[in-house]
Amino acid sequence: MKNMRRIYAALAIVLLLSKTVASGQTENEIQHNVSYKGPIIDVHLHAFHAEDNGPPPAAFCVPVSSMIQHYDPKDQWADVVVKKSKNPDCEDPLWSPETDEELIMQTVEQLERYNVVGVLSGEIDFLPQWLEAAPDRFIPSLKFSLPADEMHVDSLEALIKTFDIEVIGEIGNQYHGIAPNDPRMDKYWQLAVKLDIPVAIHLGSGPPGAPYLGFPKYRLKFSNPLQLEEVLNKFPSLRMSVMHYGEPFIDEMIAMMYTYPQLYIDLGGIMWTYPKAYFYEYHLKKLVAAGYGKRIMFGSDSMTWPGLIGRSIDIINEAYFLSLAQKADIFYNNAARFLRLTTKD
């Protein structure tokens, strides 16, 4: 009788384990369903003016790729975008605040709600207004693009020191038709090495129809991270993050991260550009599966819609294939390491 009870008990355990595995509720799988609740570093935050993305209030749909699904070129793309921003089709649009003060206040509210410190990219004449609102929530980063911001390297160094700038970026040369390896940037890369200050460069998609929205020289081909190869060879001590992870050049990005182990990436904006299923399967899952979960950083790319911060956090927390430890790396540890702050790993 004892033997029979042991057999029944063993069968019960087997059945329970089978049921648990089948329903995805193993200990490992349960961990994947847990949301990260710790501190977050958002390495991709913008100090914009309220009207920088069109007359406020303007609606924003997530994912962006579904906001305008078809277009007849008999119309002006900019007019179509503005019209849709006033009358969106999505069920739960985000609306931009109407004033700079409201934009700053709502952004700070999001940062405090989710326990976020943001690397704040902005122009030197507007950054102080943001920093004064919540100095403990922002890491100042200098927005920089050629040709508009081209200056003597000594002048840039003076700006960085005077305003306690901790990151150079977003470097938006791509919007102006300038390749990542343009030699005009060499003196600025050298300055970043000299000051031991990290840089963040835009490689990837801009807004839909970017060449028709005020960026006529924007070229998608300059998203390819392979064009950074000579830069990283010339300046091996440069701390560089690729914003938007060079999307859509995922395989090239993986190859660059393999060849240049100092290279980091951030997810800014792309997680809400495409439907989650696409972003998960063909972007994030692939980058993690390749072994680079320790160099992927969280970024909301919040501009004039502060609600993008919370939406972006949810998208990463809902990634079914990420463990809690992997989420902690993406949300905090990797950025802390890149910025040389205190890490939790």
Score class of each variant (00 low, 15 high):
Tyr8Pro: 10
Gly118Glu: 00
Ala59Ile: 01
Gly118Val: 05
Ala192Val: 00
Pro248Lys: 00
Arg6Pro: 07
Gln227Lys: 09
Ile316Tyr: 10
Ser66Lys: 15
Ile40Arg: 09
Asn3His: 05
Lys234Ala: 09
Pro140Thr: 00
Gly169Arg: 10
Ala78Leu: 15
Leu287Gly: 12
Leu94Glu: 08
Met185Pro: 07
Val64Leu: 12
Met4Gly: 13
His44Phe: 06
Phe249Glu: 03
Ala255Asn: 10
Val34Thr: 08
Ile254Glu: 06
Thr304Asp: 00
Glu281Leu: 11
Ser85Leu: 07
Met243Tyr: 14
Thr107Ile: 06
Glu123Cys: 07
Leu127Thr: 09
Tyr212Met: 15
Gln190Trp: 13
Ala289Lys: 15
Ser145Gln: 12
Ile315Tyr: 14
Gly310Pro: 11
Pro208His: 05
Thr20Cys: 07
Gly118Leu: 06
Thr162Met: 10
Ser223Cys: 01
Asp196Lys: 08
Trp189Met: 00
Leu111Lys: 15
Tyr212Pro: 12
Thr26Cys: 04
Gly206Ile: 04
Ile313Ser: 03
Ile201Cys: 08
Val81Trp: 12
Lys294Trp: 14
Ala200Lys: 12
Pro147Thr: 03
Phe48Asn: 07
Glu98Leu: 15
Ile250Leu: 05
Ile270Tyr: 14
Ile250Tyr: 07
Phe163Gln: 14
His202Gly: 00
Pro140Phe: 00
Glu132Pro: 13
Gly293Ala: 01
Leu284Thr: 02
Ile309His: 04
Ser155Thr: 04
Val80Ile: 07
Pro236Arg: 06
Pro216Asn: 06
Thr342Pro: 09
Gln31Trp: 10
Asp75Met: 12
Leu103Tyr: 02
Ala134Glu: 10
Leu159His: 11
Lys217Gln: 15
Glu170Cys: 00
Pro225Ser: 06
Gly291Ile: 04
Asp125Pro: 01
Glu101Pro: 07
Gln227Asp: 05
Ala200Tyr: 09
Arg113Asp: 04
Asn87Gln: 14
Leu11His: 05
Pro207Thr: 13
Pro180Val: 04
Thr304Lys: 15
Glu101Asn: 13
Asn333Ser: 14
Phe60Ser: 01
Ser66Arg: 15
Trp95Gly: 09
Gly269Ala: 00
Gly214Arg: 08
Lys187Thr: 05
Pro135Met: 04
Ile168Thr: 01
Gly172Gln: 13
Gly118Arg: 11
Lys187Ala: 00
Asp92Asn: 13
Lys327Asn: 03
Gln76Cys: 09
Pro306Arg: 15
Val34Asn: 08
Ser312Leu: 04
Pro73Trp: 05
Lys194Trp: 10
Leu146Cys: 00
Asp136Leu: 03
Tyr8Arg: 11
Leu146Asp: 00
Glu112Cys: 11
Gly177Leu: 02
Ser65Gly: 01
Ala22Gly: 10
Ser237Thr: 05
Met240Tyr: 05
Pro93Cys: 07
Met271Ile: 02
Asp72Lys: 07
Gly54Lys: 12
